[in-house]
Structure formats: C-alpha cells, structure tokens
Amino acid sequence: MLTRVFICSAIIVLLTGCKSTTIIDEYRENPSTSLIDGESIVVLGRRSNANHETEVDFIECVGNSLNGSLRGINIIPEQLFVDSMYPYFETSKAPMDVQNLDTLIQIPEVAKKLDDLRVRYFIWIDGFTETTDSTGALSCTIAPTGAACFGYASWDDESNYEAVIWDFKDLNLAGKISAASSGTSYLPAVIIPIPLLARVQSSACSSMSAQIKNFLQ
C-alpha cells in the first residue's frame, strides 16, 4: 500500500513539478516586417543595469534557436558582432535608442562594417532569471563506506525578458516582445538526489525565439 502511494506521488510530482508556465506579449510598431535571404540579424544582451545582466547563455539560446528556424537568414553571434564592431557596442558605449544608430552610421568605418555584415535587425534582450523562493533541506554525507543524501528541497524560478527589435534599414523601432516564465523545481533525495527541474529559462528562450520568428516573417 505504502509502495503504491509512493509511486503515485512520484508520478504526480514528475508530471506536474517540472512544468514551466510562459506568457508572451507582443507590441508591433511597424505594421509589417520582412527579411530577405542573405540579410542578417544580431541578437544582443543589455548589460547596463547595475543590478542584473542578461545572461550570455540566454542570448546564445535565442540566437541558436533563430539560426535553426530562419532559413537563409544569417544570425550573427553576439560576441563575434561586439568584437567586430569594437568599441561601439561595448556595454558602456552601446546605443540605447534606435535614433543613436543614425549617429553611429555617420562614422564611415562603422557604416561600412554594418553594410558588409548586411545587418537588417538588431534584437536587444534585457532581463534575467532568478530564484524567487526556496524551501526544504538536503544533507549529504561522505564516509569511508560510501556517500548518501537525504532530504527534500524545492525552489521557484522566474524569468522575465524583453526583446526590443530595431529595424536598421528604416532606422526605427519595429516592435517589442516580452516573455515571462515561471516554474518550480524539486529535489527529493533518498540515498541519491533525484532532480526534477523546471526549465524556466529554456522555456522563456524557446517561447521568445518562436515569437521573434513569427514577428519577423
């Protein structure tokens, strides 16, 4: 009887504990956006906030996801773009508004480089994932006879990201997309810990990428 209760509880936790909930919102400034084969998109993270910085792996995730879904469009990796445009896109010097791009392209070397890269859209992503709550306790011991963990822990993660899309051809704001994701992860441990992780950041990445793809096509 106890074994059945344990197995049912484990199945329920497995099915419900790892789920993330994502909410997507879109604001469109331009009624239509388009991409031509051979044009480029660059996905960049905003890191000027003193309290947080947009994670590098989140930007990579969005870039890789778009790379896989937008055929014929070149997705320029963030670090490659920032290095090739050094120093104009360093954290302290990056343009904060699409109007600043107009000032930037007055510099002949910058205009030529952007032209060579065939950049059409800039996608600036600002946000972060954080653990908002945690509970439980876990303890592990190591002894000559072996190692073991006992206990239970759970934590809530929340992701909040906003993507601002600049149209470089028309030098205006194309639109904004926001993604908010949350989920609870569990870590029961009976001898060995069994992580049941809610992939909150990953969920936000795939939702945002899908929305960006729909926005641009």
Partner: peptide, 13 residues
C-alpha cells in the same frame, strides 16, 4: 578583462 575593454573603448571614443 571587461574593465580593460571598457578602458580601450573610452580611450578611442
């Protein structure tokens, strides 16, 4: 490394 890059950027710009 980031601080040195920032110095380079500010020196140029």
């Amino acid at each position: 490394n980031m601080a040195l890059r920032d110095i380079g950027a500010k020196m140029v710009l």
